[in-house]
Design a protein around this nucleic acid. Structure first.
Lengths: 206, 206
DNA sequence: GTCTATAGAAGGATAGAC
DNA sequence: GTCTATCCTTCTATAGAC
């Protein structure tokens, strides 16, 4: 917490790992690549993180803690200010993720790391995410259930999965939609959020 | 094409590789795992495929060609038998992917291979996909545009992206929904297809 | 076409000096 | 906390017998 622009060894490792994981995947990235990009010694990873697996988890924790807090805060606001409305709940879920994706301070790569996480079938990571962030999804499930009465629990969870998939895919820029030259990235993301909320709201209500 | 239940060494390698790639990823799978599962010698891979990278390409192409053909055939049938209806078009897009996902004959995990391929920020792979399979997406875009009049081209492509994302995510089994013990895999997949088509149809029509 | 054997490179992880 | 040096494993790929 010092008033310095200096990044610690630990932070440099996390940043380098995030970028490389996004580009090459978890198994496709060696610790040697990570430490080389971070300009630290190969031994530093095991000193600070203990193992490669734990480094993967920490890369996630760094971004997810923040995003989860933002989602829950936005959800609280939505429920207070627009009780019974679905769209504000979906916005509380979607917008923090998209904000992270356009964050110049490194968040962009993280989005692709998330996409990696489900493309690779990393069970230990999956368990880590479920253990640490499952409660966020459950909060949203509760809120959506209240806003869309008559939806069975099963249908609700299916649709939450679809929303998460569409969000991840859109964030990672996988699809057909490329940002036009005349549009700022912020405007593009806002458009994405608007379109996705509209699409998903209709889906949840169907 | 002989009338024999015998699989060649080459086919056994392809089948084993596909299953393992889906489970552990391209980089997470070693050729030793592949040849061990295929009950062939380690040297056979390089004899038949030249390199690991080329094996990856062949695995991918084999399934992708097949799925694309099925999608287009199903689309043709849908347009002939249910002109003007959206749901059959979506089914033609979703079901071949799901059918492949439950195919025990090696296709079982292919969809995760596709998910992985998308997650690669690999431009040459992307170009390959776009060059070889882009026309399939364009056919579906045309059909959906006709079934949902008044949708702008931009909105249409956004929603196609959301559909592809939701499909990929659901296929990768990453989400909340786990197949219950008492439900067969086939029934689970059918449920997924039904839910997704319903969800997406509402989204496209919104 | 399929095997054994192995070359040669790269991986994760650790010991121990500083 | 950070370094050098190294251990041990695993990898892809190939050479050469059959």
């Amino acid at each position: 917490m010092a008033a310095t622009a200096h990044f610690s060894t630990k932070d440099r490792i996390l940043g380098a790992a995030e970028e490389l994981f996004a580009q090459f995947g978890f198994t496709g990235t060696s610790l040697r690549q990570v430490t080389s990009r971070a300009s630290v010694n190969i031994a530093a990873v095991n000193y600070h993180f203990g193992s490669k697996e734990n480094l993967v988890n920490e890369v996630f924790r760094r971004r997810m803690d923040d995003m989860s807090a933002q989602r829950l805060a936005a959800l609280k606001t939505a429920l207070e200010q627009c009780p019974g409305e679905l769209e504000p709940i979906l916005a509380a879920f979607v917008e923090p993720a998209l904000a992270l994706a356009q964050d110049k301070h490194g968040g962009g790569a993280f989005v692709r790391v998330v996409a990696r996480a489900y493309a690779e079938k990393n069970d230990s990571l999956r368990k880590f995410l479920s253990d640490h962030y499952g409660h966020v999804l459950r909060e949203f499930a509760k809120a959506i259930a209240a806003a869309v009465p008559g939806l069975s629990k099963e249908e609700l969870y299916w649709r939450l999965d679809f929303l998460a998939g569409a969000l991840t895919y859109a964030m990672a820029d996988f699809g057909l939609i490329k940002r036009p030259a005349g549009v700022t990235e912020a405007a593009h993301r806002e458009r994405a959020a608007r379109e996705l909320i509209l699409f998903a709201a209709a889906g949840f209500k169907s």
